[in-house]
């Protein structure tokens, strides 16, 4: 569906994107992960036809951004970083403007607008001017304008930056719902976001792709460690002593909560230490309050790949 071929983008002498290639399959939710300035936004701007590529090209449904930028723009919904919107415009007027500029038939405009208003939960704020809205609502307006022409592809540049935790959850749910029917490319530098929303991750660093795979894939491939949470009620000193005596486990972190001690443990990727920990607790007579394997933790992968 989207094919990026040897894409290079230079700003003057600086290479923002350096010969990257990847494809995105229909229906996939792809996460771009990378530190600020890694080239995530630049890549997205080339895909959406905002910036022309310096070298290489991007194909969307077989169309080339160098030649068919207009047709590609029709198939893509785009939400740029920081959600730029016209602050003076009421929401309804803004959506009507985008619908008209996108050439949606006057007959279909009302139903399309209603569909995105319902989907993004904007019914209550339609008459309000955009500048009076909270950031969460502004983000929804941004998503609504990106969805108004019912595109197959959605490109979202840092869609949750600057939102409060509740708003982040709302927007993520919305993105996940959209991701069930559309191809989505989203960028972020927030790691849990990728795990929450994406089928596949591309880690970009200094304009190059340094990793490509599912979040779990990357975790096992790069970090070689497995993380466990182990919580017990018992003599914390004794527990620590027993655990640190073991060579196959390493204590990464210890915290106390109301008499319960929570250990963050690391083990080799190929061993499952959970049965062992359970037996230990039984033998020693500790009350087990928590025992689970943490979901793939991309933080290590990310840091090891992008700190160099």
């Amino acid at each position: 569906m989207i094919e990026v071929r040897d894409l290079t983008k230079r700003y003057g002498a600086e290479r923002a994107v350096d010969r990257i290639s990847f494809t995105v399959a229909p229906g996939e939710v792809l996460g771009f992960l990378g530190p600020n300035g890694a080239g995530k936004s630049t890549t997205m701007k080339v895909i959406t036809g905002y910036l022309p590529p310096t070298e290489g090209t991007v194909l969307v449904d077989g169309l080339d951004v160098r030649r068919d930028a207009l047709e590609i723009r029709r198939r893509i919904g785009y939400l740029p970083e920081h959600t730029p919107l016209y602050p003076d415009m009421p929401v309804s007027e803004y959506l009507a403007f985008v619908a008209a500029m996108r050439g949606i038939d006057a007959s279909a405009r009302a139903s399309r607008t209603e569909a995105v208003v319902t989907r993004c939960g904007l019914a209550d704020v339609l008459p309000k001017r955009i500048e009076t809205l909270s950031k969460g609502y502004r983000q929804r307006v941004g998503l609504a304008q990106a969805l108004i022409h019912d595109p197959e592809i959605l490109v979202l540049d840092e869609p949750t930056t600057g939102l409060d935790p509740n708003q982040i959850v709302e927007i993520r749910e919305l993105i996940r719902a959209i991701g069930r029917e559309k191809t989505v490319i989203l960028s972020t530098h927030i790691l849990p976001e990728v795990q929450a929303s994406c089928d596949r991750v591309l880690i970009i660093h200094r304009g190059r792709i340094v990793a490509d795979g599912t979040p779990d894939d990357l975790q096992s491939r790069f970090s070689g460690l497995r993380r466990l949470s182990f919580g017990v009620r018992g003599p914390a000193d004794r527990v620590a002593e027993v655990l640190s005596a073991r060579t196959d486990l390493r204590i990464a972190d210890v915290s106390d909560l109301d008499g319960e001690t929570l250990f963050q443990l690391e083990s080799d990727a190929d061993t499952d230490a959970r049965p062992l920990l359970f037996r230990l607790a039984v033998e020693e007579g500790w009350e087990l309050t928590e025992l689970h394997r943490d979901r793939a933790n991309l933080e290590d992968v990310f840091r090891s790949l992008t700190s160099a």
């Binding site: 036809g49 905002y50 785009y78």
Partner: peptide, 11 residues
Amino acid sequence: SGTIELLLTLP
């Protein structure tokens, strides 16, 4: 404000 990016990615 960055709205130019939205304006110029319209078809």
